[in-house]
Design a binder for these strands. Structure first.
Length: 176
DNA sequence: GTAAGGATTGGC
DNA sequence: CCAATCCTTACT
């Protein structure tokens, strides 16, 4: 019952530009340490596409931090930003395709830092397997009826065409 | 060892 | 628009 609707690995082992928009409307599920299970509808995502994408962390090479992005899709990539926020990414594509989707918003919580805070993420979630994990996974949900796209946020340093690519996806034009 | 900078947020 | 905050990375 619990995992009936859990998305399989195949969902994530595709081009990040397909996965990122399709994640809108899906349910991000978190089982906390006290056993409480919460489900959050995904409302905003961003695609980071491989080593050529200058906005993608993997463009700086395979380091201890980015290593998980090079793995097969279906795992978690978390990292600490500004020394205070854990940002949640879902790795996509086949092995050696260093792409991932940044979860920028879930229903009730707007902004990637707030998502990580609500989900109580920390470094122990690095490389967590979304297919087998007992504390975080993704379930199917009602597809988004309308999707808005814009350039990605906070990557001014990346240069063209990366700063202009509309790789940010939102439900119902729910801009913040 | 030291310094620079960041896929943010919140406040002015 | 700007500062807080502190870990990661790239140097000296």
């Amino acid at each position: 019952m619990k995992s009936e609707n859990r998305l399989p690995a195949d969902f994530f082992i595709r081009d990040v530009l397909e996965v990122a928009p399709e994640l809108l409307g899906k349910m991000l599920v978190r089982q906390f340490s006290d056993g409480r299970i919460e489900r959050y509808r995904i409302t905003e995502t961003e695609a980071y596409r491989g080593i050529e994408d200058r906005a993608c962390h993997a463009s700086k090479g395979r380091t201890p931090r980015t290593e998980v992005m090079f793995r097969e899709g279906g795992t978690v990539y978390v990292y600490l930003i500004y020394g205070q926020y854990w940002l949640l990414n879902l790795v996509t594509g086949p092995e050696d395709d260093a792409s991932a989707v940044l979860i920028r918003g879930i229903e009730g919580f707007s902004g990637p830092g707030r998502v990580g805070r609500e989900l109580q993420l920390d470094r122990s979630f690095y490389a967590e397997n979304l297919i087998s994990s007992e504390r975080i996974w993704v379930e199917d949900g009602e597809a988004a009826s309308q999707i808005t796209t814009t350039p990605r946020i906070g990557i001014h340093y990346a240069g063209e065409p990366w700063t202009s690519n509309c790789w940010r996806y939102l439900i119902n034009a729910s801009l913040r």
